[in-house]
Amino acid sequence: MGRITETVKVLLIANILFFFGAEYLGDYAYKIFALWFPENPNFEFWQILTHMFMHGSFSHILFNMFALYMFGSLLEQYLGQNKFLFIYFSAGLGAAGLQILFSYIAFNDAYQVYLDAGVSPNEISNLFESVMSTGEYRVYSSIPKDVSTQLLRNYVTPMVGASGAIFGILAAFAVVYPNLPLYIIFVPIPIKAKYLIGGYFLLNLFSAITGVTLLGPSNTAYWAHIGGAVIGFITMYYWKKNSFDTNRWN
């Protein structure tokens, strides 16, 4: 591990300050800075950026900052500050966009089930208000429990974390250093970056598609991981290919 670069250092400090600031402010910080579902009254446009600096637990920020520390500096040394920041934030924004898209799909499907069951839009709005203010809601016997969970979870659960941006960094790293041997705990043999990071991506893709949690808590935003990784991979692949085409002999 080489020296930590300035940009990575600033990102680490910013995330850590946000984490302890949120711990001090409590729920108010999450209300203001976490990314809420756009239909939720807590949603604000700046949350698309600020949610990347919020984390739900110590283990959450520890994993993300460890990955940033391990892979970020080497990638920044290769790319330079501006391109590194572009990948970091574009991956974070792409992650939020894809997660919101799939949240909308799940939300609208569940909302339609409620309408088909004869529940009026006004009653659904009252349901949202109740669960936001008290944590309780009316149960409709004609509506499956998993549908209610799908509707309300998307509405009331905010998105936090730098995971999408970190996945963008990991994917870009695998493009730049595909054969770099990496070690993981409890595995005594080195694994090439393209296989380790690619395998981690596939595990997240499996969980995103099936809903089966293999890594992390059950409320992990897997589509955000996928979105960040795709943005990081495509951007880095384009830059690397374009650089090769520009510098090769004619």
Rank of each mutant, 00 (worst) to 15 (best):
F173T: 11
V230E: 04
L35Y: 08
I124N: 00
K241C: 02
M52I: 14
F20A: 09
V8E: 03
A165K: 06
F66D: 03
L93N: 02
L98Q: 07
N247D: 08
V147A: 09
A162W: 03
A224D: 06
F20N: 04
T5P: 00
F18P: 02
Q99D: 10
F89P: 03
S243I: 01
N250D: 09
Y237A: 13
E39F: 14
T149W: 12
S148E: 13
Y222R: 14
N247K: 10
Y195H: 14
P190T: 06
G227I: 08
I226P: 01
F45H: 08
F186R: 08
T7M: 09
K145W: 11
I32F: 12
I184E: 05
S142Y: 02
G211W: 07
F206V: 14
G232H: 04
V176H: 08
N82Q: 09
L12C: 09
F33C: 09
V212G: 01
F167K: 02
F167M: 14
F201N: 05
Y183P: 00
P190D: 07
N42P: 00
F233S: 07
L202V: 15
Y104T: 03
N64T: 09
F71D: 04
Y78R: 15
L79G: 01
L215F: 15
K241W: 13
F53V: 03
L115W: 08
N64K: 01
L196M: 12
E76S: 05
I105T: 11
N179Y: 14
F53L: 15
I231K: 01
N108L: 13
S130L: 00
I226Y: 03
N126H: 11
A221T: 00
G21I: 11
S59Q: 10
Y237E: 07
A221G: 06
T157Q: 08
L152V: 14
V10M: 11
E44M: 10
N122F: 13
N250L: 13
L85H: 04
L98F: 13
S120M: 04
D27C: 02
E123R: 06
I105E: 06
L214D: 05
L152S: 06
L79P: 01
I32D: 04
P158G: 07
A229S: 12
L180N: 03
I16H: 06
Y104H: 13
L152G: 06
L74I: 11
R3H: 10
M52Y: 05
